[in-house]
């Protein structure tokens, strides 16, 4: 089947989509946007977190057909040209990145968290990011990145 959607502001068309296919597969294998990662296919790890019509979801659990007509934003769509989003900048500055495989999902999840709660308490951060597994960092530097991005507010785009 054909699926038409908007990804990072660009209209996209995917043809020959299998009906049981996930949005994640469409993004990665059909639209050339491998930023969202595939690591569990069951909504446990959050590596595939993207915005779907303004809310964060696991793209692996969204059927491609459910994204028909939807607005999708992936990690590739957060920076403004060369200017990193403040969350991306904070991840870099705080050393919140190791292997990088969980990073795209975490960056999107933190972006959403701070949009909803600009100054979250630590417990709220840990809860809000509970669906994004990271095997490398032990989360401390990720927490630091969230704090840094929150402190900077909307500034820090670079």
């Amino acid at each position: 089947m054909r699926v038409e959607l908007t990804v990072n502001g660009e209209p996209q068309v995917a043809d020959d989509v299998w009906e049981g296919e996930s949005l994640l597969y469409v993004l990665r294998e059909r639209l050339g946007l491998p930023g969202a990662k595939n690591a569990c296919e069951q909504g446990e790890c959050g590596s595939c977190t993207v915005y779907l019509d303004g809310t964060v979801v696991c793209a692996c659990l969204v059927a491609a057909g459910q994204a028909e007509g939807a607005e999708v934003v992936t990690v590739e769509g957060l920076a403004d040209g060369d200017a990193l989003d403040p969350v991306q900048r904070a991840f870099l500055d705080a050393g919140a990145v190791q292997c990088g495989f969980c990073t795209p999902g975490l960056v999107v999840a933190v972006h959403d968290l701070l949009a909803r709660t600009p100054d979250p308490a630590e417990a709220d951060v840990r809860e809000a990011l509970a669906g994004n597994l990271c095997r490398c960092t032990g989360y401390e530097h990720i927490l630091a990145a969230v704090r840094l991005a929150a402190e900077r507010g909307g500034e820090g785009r670079s």
Binding site: G32, L33, N38, E76, L78, L84, F91, G95, T103, P104
Partner: peptide, 23 residues
Amino acid sequence: TALDRVEGRDKVTGLARYAYEYP
């Protein structure tokens, strides 16, 4: 020193390519 990760920018923007993602 605490030099920033040199490939960090590629990773936070989703541009870093992993094995399965090569064209």
